[in-house]
């Protein structure tokens, strides 16, 4: 049996193996297009993560609902960035955390990760950093915000790394790091099974989710889809 005949025999044998149906993918066009599929996928993740109605405590005093958290972040458009800069830079910050506003340190905006009605923004000069968490109501009015100041342990932006993790409560967690030079996407795989797509900006990735969730893997991919960086169960 020559190579061609053997190859054909292999193809023929595997053609008998049944293939599972994926109606949600087939139906992406027939129904409401890709957005419907993304919404459905996001809703499944939300169902697992929220298990009903989870709460976010932005400043430890006021309890605010996480409304429509999604595994895929909101686009970093001018509205969201302006909201982050206005809120965290010099706007509505609770008195409790007033002393750690990014503006107090002159830190420039880097990236904001918005999901549902909440967001986390990173302001950094590469070493000094301030992270700011805030949420808004249906009208877009920001309710409150809190921020914290720190210093990164690494300034090497050439490769994927893990700089900040753990939100400090049972209803919030986040991760921040350098995305690496080649990365165009960064995905965070949680122990719960959720895959959270991070927001990218100025060499950093940032993602948050409404639960305390152990990170199993962080994967960065380049424009071709190839893995450009990978961290397995990162922790301090």
């Amino acid at each position: 049996m020559d190579d061609d005949a053997l190859s054909e025999r292999i193809r023929s044998a595997f053609a008998d193996i049944s293939v599972p149906t994926r109606p949600e993918l087939v139906g992406a066009r027939k129904n409401r297009g890709g957005r419907w599929l993304l919404l459905r996928a996001a809703s499944l993740v939300v169902a697992v993560l929220l298990a009903g109605f989870l709460l976010l405590r932005p400043d430890g005093s006021a309890v605010q609902p996480v409304d429509a958290w999604t595994a895929v972040p909101l686009p970093q458009d001018s509205v969201l960035i302006a909201r982050a800069e206005a809120t965290c830079g010099n706007g509505v910050v609770s008195d409790k955390t007033l002393a750690s506003r990014p503006i107090d340190f002159g830190l420039p905006f880097s990236v904001v990760d918005g999901r549902g009605n909440g967001a986390v923004a990173l302001f950094t000069d590469g070493t000094n950093n301030a992270t700011c968490r805030f949420y808004w109501d249906r009208s877009g009015t920001v309710g409150s915000a809190t921020s914290s100041y720190g210093r990164f342990t690494s300034t090497d932006s050439s490769r994927l790394d893990f700089l900040i993790g753990a939100g400090g409560s049972d209803s919030f967690d986040m991760v921040i790091g350098h995305s690496g030079t080649l990365a165009t996407t960064v995905d965070v795989e949680l122990e719960s099974g959720a895959d959270v797509t991070a927001s990218l900006g100025h060499g950093f990735y940032l993602a948050w989710w409404p639960e305390r969730g152990k990170i199993l893997r962080i994967v960065a991919r380049d424009a071709t889809g190839a893995i450009s960086g990978e961290l397995d169960q990162p922790h301090f």
């Binding site: 025999r9 292999i10 023929s12 044998a13 595997f14 008998d16 193996i17």
Partner: peptide, 11 residues
């Protein structure tokens, strides 16, 4: 349900 399981096993 495959007609040629030897190939499946071999691969």
């Amino acid at each position: 349900r495959v007609a040629d399981p030897d190939v499946i096993r071999a691969v």
